[in-house]
Write a protein that binds this DNA or RNA. Structure first.
Lengths: 190, 190
DNA sequence: GTCTATACCCGGATAGAC
DNA sequence: GTCTATCCGGGTATAGAC
């Protein structure tokens, strides 16, 4: 293995910043390279194409995200961890900008990350449904909650809050609003 | 006045399509011009710059949107009209793509539409708060509804649903999910 | 009003030296 | 591994003919 290659990591972080600010489409490899003190072909040595860089950024983000949802917890703990994740997110606005903008771009079927985001949202809805079913099995879900709708709604709420929060951080309290909504679904304290 | 200039309208529609597909940043004036059978400088004759075109598109969209919210209605009717607007929106995915993507891009303070979207969301929250207060005054709001949070939430829900719907139209029923959420806030049938 | 032609810049990607 | 140099396409915008 190479002595100690943290250049990849530096490039990834610079890419997160750039993608978050102007999106994947408008980001330039030259600009990203300049941010971490490497030349444009130097960057392409580590990531063979711009699309490969995007893929690496998204996978990196996924890995980070999964750490917030360890296994063997109660259904309620999944919701609690989601709140914790959002509480963490307000400390990394660049990453949120990256996510919001890339997801919006990727609604276009021609975007290189289109399939990734289709699969991602299908998975998010499925995971949220599972958590809600588990909460119901544990007797903690309010009667009358439609699990299918609630799962779609929770993920929509998180996404929509991010846009408003990025535009007006002082006026939109993401974690609190999310917590109150989730609390309205369950009978026990979150 | 000119004999009959609908070229502006044609260009606006082509711009909506292009902005909706790849966003403002990645759209090209040449491509937009080609869509409506005009040359690139021909387009610039009607709109002096790309940014002017974006402004015109957003104002055009605003005007259309306002038509869904006539005055002198009850608070509940505002929510009913919001549902009708979303029911209409599912018939114009290009416009929704434009909106989602432009809003995401505009979270960047350097984006030409940043101020527009900051003002827009402040206004949306204010208008939604007013409608909810009116519903409360009319005795139709459920007890325990926090108007401030509910207003932010409703707008976040609409935005977030759009992303999921664009990625999976068959799996996300925007109008129904919105209606059920709004119904959960009020005591009378929507 | 709408065109052709063009100026000028920046994008992704590659070749090849060190 | 990282560089310089370069290719080629495409971006906004302008000048000037018709």
């Amino acid at each position: 293995m190479p002595a100690r290659t943290n250049k990849r990591e530096q490039i990834l972080q610079a890419a997160v910043l750039s993608f978050g600010e102007v999106g994947f489409n408008s980001s330039s490899l030259r600009e990203i390279a300049a941010r971490c003190g490497v030349s444009h072909p130097g960057l392409l040595h580590h990531f063979p194409s711009k699309e490969a860089l995007l893929t690496a950024v998204l996978e990196h983000r996924d890995t980070d995200e999964r750490r917030w949802f360890p296994r063997s917890e109660s259904g309620l703990d999944v919701l609690r961890n989601l709140i914790k994740l959002v509480e963490h997110n307000v400390t990394v606005p660049g990453l949120i900008g990256l996510y919001v903008l890339t997801a919006a771009e990727a609604t276009n079927p021609a975007h290189p990350a289109h399939d990734y985001f289709q699969r991602r949202y299908a998975r998010l809805r499925r995971d949220t449904r599972r958590a809600l079913h588990r909460i119901r099995d544990e007797g903690d879900l309010h009667a009358g909650v439609d699990v299918e709708d609630a799962a779609t709604m929770i993920n929509a709420l998180v996404d929509g809050l991010q846009v408003q929060w990025l535009l007006a951080p002082a006026e939109v309290d993401m974690p609190t609003i999310l917590r109150r909504h989730l609390q309205s679904l369950v009978t026990r304290k979150l």
